[in-house]
Simulated assay, not measured.
Amino acid sequence: MHARIALLPGDGIGPEIVAEAVRVLQAVADRFSHTFELSEHLIGGAAIDAVGDPLPPDTLKACKQADAILLGAVGGPKWDDPNAAVRPEQGLLRIRKELGLFANLRPIKPLDALVDASPLKTDIVRGTDILFVRELTGGVYFGDSGRRDDGKTAYQEMVYSEAEVERIVRLAARLAQGRGGRLTSVDKANVLEPSRLWRSVTTRVLADEFPDVTLEHVLVDAMAMHLLVRPRDFDVVVTGNLFGDILTDEASMLPGSLGLLPSASLGAPKSEGGGPGLFEPIHGSAPDIAGTGKANPLATILCTAMLLRDGLGLPDEAAAVEGAVHDAVGSGVRTADIAAGAASVTTTEAADAVLERI
C-alpha cells in the first residue's frame, strides 16, 4: 500500500511523541512492505507563532489530500488567555469541521500489567473494555452564543438535528456489532429537549436498522457514577459533544494514565465521499515536561494502530503495533508517569522497546 500521512506535531511534547510514532510507522512500512509518504505541517500555538493562524491554509490543504492525519497536541501557557482572539484550540475545532469529522472514538481498556496504577480498586477496573463514541461537530460547542444586558448575561445554545444523531448512532451501532453487541446511549432526556430528540432518534435507528444490538439509555449524571463503580458493564457508549467531552476525560483515568490512551476522529466512510481520519492522543501538550525526555509516547504509538486500522484499513498492522505496546509494558517498560516511583525509561527508550517487538 502507498498512503499519504499528514503529521501535525503541534505544541509542547507534541513534536517529541509524534517523532517516536513516525519511527513506528516506518517500522510497520518496512515489515509489511508498505510505503508511507509523510509530510509535516503546522497547527495550534506553533502555527500562531509562525503565521498567526492556528490552522494555516497550507495545513488544511495537506490534510484534505492525505489518507490519514496524526496529531500530537496543541496549546500551552503561552496561549492560555481564554479572551484571546486567536487560540490554539481553534485549529482543532476548525479541522474537525472542515473535514467533517463528526465522531470521536476513545477506547478505554486498561492494560493488565498496569491495572494496579488505576486510582480505582483492581477488581472494579480489571476487564474494562469500553469504546466511547462522542459526537464531535454539533451540540453546545457549535451552538449560537453571545452576551446580553451589557455583558451581564451569557448564553450558548445546544442544537442537534435528526440527521446528526442518526449518523453518529449508526456508526456506534456498527461498532457495537463488531464487539459485544451492546450500545449505551447517554443523554439528559429528563431535562433537555435536544436529549429527548437524541433518545427518540436513537431508539428508532436501533429498532429499524440494528435489531441485533442491545440498546440501553442512561442519564449522564448516572453514567458519571456508573463509570466509577461498574465500568465493566459497558461495551460501546454513544453520546453528544458536551457529555462525551466530560465522560471520556473521567473514563480516561480508569487505566491510570492519560499517557496510554489514543483517540480517532472520523467522518463518513471513503465510499460515501468522506475524508481522512485524524488520530491523536487524548493527553494535552504537557509543556512542563517538553524537552525533558519524560513524555510517554505510548498513547501516540497506539494512535498509529488506530490510524492503521480505522484510517488505512490495515488491521494486521494495527494488531502488530498494539501487541508490541502490550508486550513492552508487560515486560516492565515504564515512563515516569506510570513508573509509580520505580525506575523509568525515556520517551525514546519506550519507543525503542516497542520497535524491538514489531
Rank of each mutant, 00 (worst) to 15 (best):
L38H: 13
G313C: 07
S271T: 10
G332N: 01
P297V: 08
A222N: 15
W79K: 04
G76H: 02
G44K: 03
A264H: 13
M223H: 13
V51G: 02
K109M: 00
A6E: 05
D150E: 11
M1E: 00
I358Q: 09
E356H: 08
L355F: 02
T214R: 13
L307D: 04
L93P: 04
E349M: 05
S200N: 08
E280I: 15
E166A: 15
D53N: 10
V329L: 08
E98D: 15
D352L: 07
L111G: 15
L183M: 13
T203D: 12
A343W: 01
P57N: 02
A264R: 11
A224D: 03
A319M: 05
M225F: 03
A27H: 06
I289H: 02
L136A: 12
W79N: 06
T248I: 07
A319N: 01
I246A: 01
V333L: 07
S161P: 04
V236E: 13
A172I: 00
R23E: 11
P255T: 01
V205D: 02
D221Y: 05
T137W: 02
R232V: 12
A176L: 08
D316S: 13
V325Y: 11
V18N: 06
E16T: 07
I338C: 15
I338N: 15
T347P: 14
A62L: 02
I358P: 11
D337N: 11
V18I: 08
K294I: 06
D112R: 14
L38N: 12
T335G: 09
N104A: 09
K270C: 11
A163F: 14
T202I: 03
G146V: 02
E89R: 09
E349I: 03
E280N: 14
S118P: 14
R232N: 10
P107H: 11
I124W: 06
I246V: 06
E40K: 10
V237I: 12
L111D: 15
A117Y: 08
E37F: 11
D288T: 03
E356G: 10
A264N: 11
D327I: 09
A320Q: 09
D112H: 13
G12A: 13
K64Q: 09
K188G: 06
V24K: 08
L308S: 05
V238N: 01
P82G: 10
V201Q: 08
P110S: 02
H41F: 08
G14M: 14
I358E: 07
S271F: 04
G75R: 05
E98C: 14
A189G: 05
P54Y: 09
R182H: 13
H34F: 06
S252F: 10
D53E: 03
L266C: 11
A27N: 07
K152G: 09
A172M: 02
V186I: 04
V133D: 02
I301S: 11
P57H: 01
G127T: 00
T203Y: 10
G178Y: 01
S161V: 04
F210R: 09
D327E: 15
A336W: 05
L261A: 00
K152W: 06
G72M: 03
E16G: 05
V201K: 05
G52F: 01
A3Q: 08
Q26G: 06
G291C: 07
W198L: 08
M158R: 10
P297A: 10
G330C: 14
G274P: 03
L307I: 04
A224N: 07
G143T: 01
T122K: 15
Q156M: 09
L197S: 04
L254G: 07
E349Q: 08
G151N: 09
E322R: 06
A353G: 03
G44M: 03
E216P: 06
K294G: 04
